[in-house]
């Protein structure tokens, strides 16, 4: 008997009697949801900027990253920033100073933004870039992860990730340091 059969037959023999799955009804509130989201994200080291259009967003990007490599997957920004051929080796993204990527929605309770592979250009990009900007519409903020998974539903993606703030560590004596291995800073643009 190979291990697979051995494990499965032992599991079948030993698993206890049926237990039902519970309902997932939790409380949630959409009051001041954008403020809540901002407060939480700032608390975990991120930043939030409200912008009213692509021009304003672009202006805000370039002031902070003049002469640095900026990469985006957002069509509205491509004319201003340029395009990248994402078929090349992801290692070549190592010198990206700022990646500007669209998020699907954000979650107020934890400051996270949901982003899937087709919005990443290359799947390495959100993690290898030195700084990360995520753009969502202001109305796309959900109260909790419970609503987030309702929204995600059975949508198909190859890789999906919640990103909440910049990469960080507190492994050295519990001192919080931003910029462990991933992005050193994260800003979420809320498009009005």
């Amino acid at each position: 008997m190979d291990s697979r059969e051995k494990i499965l037959s032992q599991v079948r023999k030993n698993q206890p009697g049926v237990a039902m799955l519970p309902d997932l009804n939790f409380s949630s509130s959409s009051d001041n949801i954008a403020e809540k989201f901002s407060t939480v994200l700032v608390n975990i080291g991120g930043a939030v900027l409200e912008v009213s259009g692509w021009d304003e967003l672009h202006a805000s990007l370039v002031t902070n990253f003049t002469n640095k490599r900026i990469v985006t997957t957002i069509p509205e920004l491509n004319q201003r920033i340029g395009t990248v051929d994402f078929r090349q080796d992801p290692h070549l993204l190592e010198n990206v100073a700022l990646a500007v990527l669209p998020g699907k929605f954000a979650v107020a309770e934890n400051g996270a933004v949901w982003i899937t592979d087709e919005m990443m250009g290359d799947r390495a990009l959100p993690f290898i870039c030195e700084n990360l900007a995520l753009v969502i519409r202001k109305q796309d903020i959900l109260p909790t992860l419970n609503e987030a998974y309702q929204q995600i539903g059975m949508s198909s993606y190859n890789l999906g990730t919640f990103i909440a703030g910049p990469s960080k560590t507190a492994d050295i004596e519990q001192s919080l340091v931003l910029g462990a291995h991933g992005a050193k800073s994260l800003v979420v643009y809320l498009m009005k």
Binding site: E109, L159, T161
Partner: peptide, 17 residues
Amino acid sequence: ATGQPITTYSSHFKKPR
């Protein structure tokens, strides 16, 4: 674990690149 609302990255790996 640490009192954070969520970890920075919660990655859902479905299909390989």
